[in-house]
Computed example of a mutant assay.
Amino acid sequence: MSEKIRIKDIAEKSGVSVGTVDRVLHNRPNVSKSAREKVEAVLKNINYQPNMYASALAYNKSYTFYCIIPQHKSEAYWEEIEEGAAKACEARRDFHIDVKMMYYKRFDPSTFIREYTKCLNANPNGVIVVPSDLETTKGFTEKLHERGIPFILLDSYMPDLKPLSFYGQDSFCSGYFAAKMLMLIASGEKEIMLMKQTKNGKVESKQQDNREVGFRHYMQDHFPQTKIIELDLPLDEDENNYDSILENFFTSNPHIHHCITLCSKGHIVGEFLLKTNRRDVQIMGYDMVEKNAKCLRLGTISFLIAQHAFMQGYNCVDTLFKAIVLKKKVDPVNYMPIELLSKENVDFYRRTQL
């Protein structure tokens, strides 16, 4: 009945004018208390469900969302985030949705503050943000709350910031799973290599920190005798120097045959192994970027854990659309699947689920 009933029918049942019903439905002023109560009683009785999609189209408004993410190079996880966000805008083009991308340096909170200040000055309808450190990000999100601007956290979940929603993997479970899968093929090894990229001793994100906690938790519980040897490829190092760092590492650690990295740069090691024709070393890494996929197909990467970056970008924009434009309730926490890719199934991996 709710799909077929007309405003005229509601007006007749309520004993008020069509204009009064329209004002109640759109929560506009200039409606007396008694008239509003009559209309709301009829709406409740017929279980009226407004067509928010059609209503939003009728307003013909435009909406601008801002997405604040780390600066990155090509062949990175963040590229897929951007592509997903752009695809969501295209899918909702009838509603005049636009996403503005903004970038900050991972280890420089001042650049995060600079970008979020620009964002606030633009008065966006909604925001997607990859957090900096907790305190710096809190300074931004408190201002968003003050202005009533909804925001979504991407990549790292910080529930104390009270976002509208979160998209990303359960990073602890992801690291635990990575260790479990790695040790299915490396259970007889006495040593494994953990490759990290850091700056001033810190990895790029809270997500990677949590992955390592999960990884070490599994190793301690099930393979406490296996030694984990860390290799740091500094983020501020000239990439041309990585080969010499890797050469020295494998020369000094000839018994290492299995490596893992909890970031998207497994291809750095994979490409080195291809160049030096080391076929006795295998890597496990993260993210279905093309350079990783190439190493996977050629055999220097044994497994990749995919986290559907494209869908994260798409869903963040679409969730803001549903909450802001359609006034729908959205899920507060959205964990992405933890999927294991090998050279046998990588070509069947679908980065989209549209």
Rank of each mutant, 00 (worst) to 15 (best):
His26Gln: 06
His26Met: 01
Asn27Cys: 03
Asn30Pro: 00
Asn30Cys: 06
Asn30Ser: 09
Asn30Glu: 11
Ser32Arg: 12
Lys33Met: 05
Lys33Ile: 11
Ser34Tyr: 00
Arg36Met: 03
Arg36Cys: 00
Arg36Phe: 01
Lys38Phe: 00
Lys38Arg: 08
Lys38Thr: 02
Glu40Gln: 13
Glu40Val: 09
Asn45His: 12
Asn45Cys: 13
Asn47Val: 03
Asn47His: 11
Asn47Met: 11
Tyr48Thr: 03
Tyr48Arg: 07
Gln49Glu: 15
Pro50Tyr: 10
Asn51Phe: 04
Met52Pro: 01
Tyr53Ser: 04
Tyr53Asp: 00
Ala54Gly: 08
Ala54Lys: 11
Ala54Cys: 01
Ser55Pro: 00
Leu57Tyr: 02
Ala58Trp: 01
Tyr59Gln: 15
Tyr59Lys: 15
Tyr59Met: 14
Asn60Ile: 03
Asn60Thr: 05
Asn60Gln: 14
Asn60Arg: 14
Asn60Pro: 01
Lys61Val: 02
Tyr63Leu: 07
Tyr63Ile: 10
Tyr63Gln: 10
Ile69Ala: 08
Ile69Ser: 05
Ile69Lys: 04
Gln71Ile: 10
Lys73Gln: 13
Lys73Gly: 12
Ser74Met: 08
Ser74Thr: 11
Ala76Val: 07
Ala76Arg: 10
Glu79Ile: 08
Ile81Phe: 12
Ile81Val: 13
Glu82Val: 08
Gly84Glu: 06
Gly84Ile: 02
Gly84Ala: 04
Ala86Ser: 09
Ala86Arg: 15
Lys87Asn: 03
Lys87His: 08
Ala88Glu: 08
Cys89Val: 02
Cys89Glu: 12
Arg92Tyr: 09
Arg92Asn: 13
Arg93Gly: 04
Asp94Trp: 02
Asp94Tyr: 09
His96Arg: 13
Asp98Gly: 09
Asp98Met: 05
Asp98Gln: 08
Val99Asp: 09
Val99Gly: 12
Met101Cys: 10
Met102Val: 07
Met102Leu: 15
Met102Cys: 11
Tyr103Gly: 05
Tyr103Gln: 04
Tyr104Thr: 02
Arg106Asn: 12
Arg106Glu: 12
Arg106Val: 15
